[in-house]
């Protein structure tokens, strides 16, 4: 959920939006926000599943330290979504286990 009105921070400034895709679905994101925040704003609460037991994982530290929030971004797995900014047309996918590489040059 976005915090639109805030008693201290004021109204959320109207920024530019960019379109990204999440597991194939188009989503609107705010320019400059981390991928994780964009997904959270749309109620998506899972970034990946674990290697052995396929348990769901979301974010934990929010500042790039724990790697819980990694996803496949533009074909590259293990990208920390809490510290990676969205970009127009960015392709974001839930990472199953260690994920897989989608080699652009292959």
């Amino acid at each position: 959920m976005r915090v639109v009105d805030h008693p201290i921070l004021g109204k959320l400034p109207e920024g530019r939006t960019v379109e990204i895709t999440f597991d194939g679905h188009p989503l609107e994101a705010l320019e400059g926000e981390p991928i994780l925040a964009a997904l959270l704003a749309h109620g998506i609460q899972r970034c990946r599943t674990t290697v052995k037991r396929r348990e769901p994982r979301w974010f934990y530290c929010g500042i790039g330290r724990c790697t819980d929030c990694v996803m496949i971004v533009n074909g590259i797995p293990n990208v920390r979504t809490c510290v990676t900014t969205v970009g127009a047309g960015m392709k974001i996918e839930t990472q199953e286990g260690l994920g897989r590489w989608e080699r652009a040059d292959a």
Binding site: R2, V3, V4, H6, L9, L36, L40, A41, I63
Partner: peptide, 8 residues
């Protein structure tokens, strides 16, 4: 961080 910086 999420609520005060990223506003979610």
């Amino acid at each position: 961080t999420m609520m005060n910086i990223h506003r979610v």
